[in-house]
Computed example of a mutant assay.
Amino acid sequence: MFHTTVYEGTLEQQYDTVIRQLQSLIEDEPNFIANLANASALLGQFLPDINWAGFYLLDEKGLVLGPFQGMPACVRIPVGRGVCGTAAKRRETMLVPDVHAFPGHIACDAASRSEIVVPLLTPSGELLGVLDIDSPSIDRFGEIDRVQLERFAGVLTAGL
């Protein structure tokens, strides 16, 4: 679905490159929404075999759709429901090899088969929302993705 840029090196080195790119994109921009928009575009360009990359942001009613790359998505997700809502409630990354096996999965795109959701936490621990990435392949995401996408999310929220 996306045009993926090919990076050299190990997966960790590739993530290092993307995180440096993210840092340079956001270093002088205080607007969080603009930074999330560029972050989702960067992930859409970098990550192979994905069909959605974006953010859900916490408001008084739960999680609401933020900047993303991919097909139109569910607009609201209650905290505690689906993969995104569960990650928000637990404040921990959810790595789901097969979304059809996840109890209460919310299917925004029927093509999605695996998913990783990383909470966005301020340095003080306040929940801002989640980073959500979907793939049409089963078991697309692994431990390296979890660690590196948590780093990616930390860069986004470090200055808040």
Rank of each mutant, 00 (worst) to 15 (best):
D132E: 05
G154R: 14
V96S: 08
L11Y: 12
G54L: 05
D132H: 14
D134L: 08
M94C: 14
V96T: 04
N38H: 04
Q21V: 02
L43F: 14
I133C: 03
L65N: 02
T157I: 11
L11G: 00
V6F: 09
L95N: 11
I19C: 07
C108M: 06
F32R: 07
L120V: 03
L25W: 00
L95Q: 01
F68H: 13
L25H: 08
T157D: 06
E115D: 14
M71G: 01
L47F: 08
P67A: 03
L120K: 00
P97I: 00
G70R: 00
Q148C: 12
R20V: 05
C74G: 04
K61V: 10
E150H: 10
G85Q: 13
I116W: 12
S135M: 10
V147D: 03
V117D: 01
G142D: 15
D59P: 06
P67F: 03
F2R: 11
R140H: 14
L160R: 07
T86N: 07
L22R: 12
A153D: 13
V130I: 12
T10P: 12
F68P: 04
L131Y: 04
V155P: 08
L131Q: 05
G54V: 10
R91Q: 15
A73E: 02
I116K: 09
L95H: 04
V6Q: 11
L22E: 13
P48V: 04
F55S: 04
S124P: 00
E60T: 14
L25G: 01
V117E: 02
